[in-house]
Write a protein that binds this DNA or RNA. Structure first.
Lengths: 157, 157
DNA sequence: TTAACCCTCATACTTTAGGGTGATTTTTCA
DNA sequence: TGAAAAATCACCCTAAAGTATGAGGGTTAA
């Protein structure tokens, strides 16, 4: 049962076309009976049929090929420059201070402790202290781990 | 001149259709003259016209609507689990070997040289050697820089 | 088969990173 | 205002990372 209704639904256009064609033939037959007497009306008749059925063909083709849209998948935003959204919840949860975050960021781009110290105008020992606290809060042992974890938690880009 | 040829090229299908239609009408006219004497041949004639021109209409519609492709933008997943595509070009350009890449990957997840050595069943010195070459090829001085650069170049995820 | 890599390992040395402890100053907030 | 938190710095020590050099074995392609 479901199959039958499904078939009808799917071929609605075809069936409609068939019915329309039959109706048209009847109409033409009637026209034939009426105007067969008129001389040279035959050309008009044939032309009419041609035009009408061409139109029908076009309509049919358009109906049947309606979903003729070539689907082109376009990956928007494939690249790296992903928008970074700082995970402030994690930041407060881990109780990481501004300065510590600053050190962490500089660390993540590959700077040494000495370079970070110079950049932040503090001593090397200060950076080491920041690091120690940072590692404790992030529960890691090395700076590379700290970077990995921080990136995973969206604390740094 | 250019406009004319351009017009001809663009409307080739339409012109072809017109010519074909004219030829067909001539053919039908000829058929009419030959078989008009036969009784009830008219129905066959009309049917033929209907079928032929329906087919023509379908063909025409398909021809004219072929380049009508609708572009559908589809962004595939915006979230974090971004598919990593290894940049093999950069890899070959930098002349980084398989083993070096392996070390680089383990390095990037925060492992120490000793841990990498244990994981790869080689000595610590071997890892150090790999590192030295890696740093040379990536033109960096530290492992954190190496990780940063490698990620930027899509050599590691 | 030779040259060119690649992977391996070693030794020796320097530099950097990290741990532990303690202390001072500044900021912040209740 | 007074305590907590944050930021600063020092010293000592160990661990890890990084540099330099040499060298042996395996694979591969000219």
């Amino acid at each position: 049962m479901a199959n039958t209704s499904n078939f009808l639904a799917k071929n609605k256009s075809v069936i409609l076309y068939g019915v329309f064609l039959a109706a048209l033939l009847f109409l033409l037959k009637w026209l034939e009976l009426r105007f067969i007497i008129i001389n040279h009306a035959f050309e008009i008749y044939a032309g009419s049929i041609a035009v009408i059925f061409t139109a029908l063909g076009i309509w049919l083709a358009l109906k049947l090929t309606r979903p003729k849209t070539i689907l082109i998948e376009k990956d928007v935003f494939t690249g790296k420059p992903e928008a970074f959204i700082l995970n402030e919840k994690e930041l407060t949860k881990l109780n990481i201070s501004k300065r510590e975050l600053e050190v962490l960021q500089l660390m993540s781009v590959g700077l040494s402790n000495q370079e970070i110290a110079l950049k932040l105008f503090v001593s090397l020992n200060t950076i080491k202290t920041h690091n120690a606290r940072l590692f404790g809060k992030l529960e890691v042992k090395r700076r590379t781990q700290a970077i990995e974890t921080a990136k995973r938690l969206c604390i740094i880009p």
